[in-house]
């Protein structure tokens, strides 16, 4: 009986471990960005906390920590450290998060080509290489040095009616 009580106390101790709450940094002068105008408005808000609204098109089925937020004109990925509720799909959300930017340039294309060349399936390999060519031509035609791929690091969300 004594052993049983001791074991029960040990089990209860482990289960009573309580996690510490995380504090979020205060947010000042938060910009609201239109998803339709993301490419135009984003450059001046990179690395800032912003609000952006759109429809949750899908939650990544592998980890559940990525949402594709869409509008009629645009889309953006929202990344979270915790899993999103799949029930958000099809709902209009206002996401608060930190706007990030990935630079897509010639070095990115070279990396994509290297990755594509490791694909064993011939059709997939050709398709991936063609995509790189299209992107490279598209960048050349744009006259820019690079494309910006914007994303949002999730902080919180609201569901709108």
């Amino acid at each position: 009986m004594k052993n049983r009580i001791q074991t029960s106390v040990m089990i209860a101790s482990i289960l009573l471990l309580i996690s510490c709450g995380s504090e979020k940094a205060p947010v000042s002068e938060m910009a609201t960005i239109s998803l339709d105008l993301l490419q135009e408005e984003a450059p001046k808000h990179v690395n800032q906390t912003i609000k952006i609204s759109g429809i949750a098109d899908h939650v990544c089925k592998h980890g559940g920590k990525k949402i594709l937020l869409v509008s009629n004109e645009n889309n953006v990925h929202v990344f979270s450290k915790e899993r999103f509720d799949e029930n958000l799909v099809g709902q209009e959300l206002i996401i608060t998060g930190i706007l990030g930017e990935n630079i897509i340039d010639e070095s990115t294309f070279q990396k994509w080509e290297e990755d594509a060349n490791t694909i064993e399936d011939h059709a997939s390999k050709i398709s991936s290489l063609e995509y790189v060519t299209v992107m490279r031509d598209s960048l050349k035609a744009s006259g820019k040095d690079y494309f910006s791929d914007y994303y949002v690091d999730y902080i919180s969300h609201q569901i709108t009616e």
Partner: peptide, 21 residues
Amino acid sequence: MRKYYYPEGNRIKIFLKGGSS
């Protein structure tokens, strides 16, 4: 029904409750 949008000019995607579309 939930929301809908036009991913392309001639294509509409409509979301239903429960994840169907």
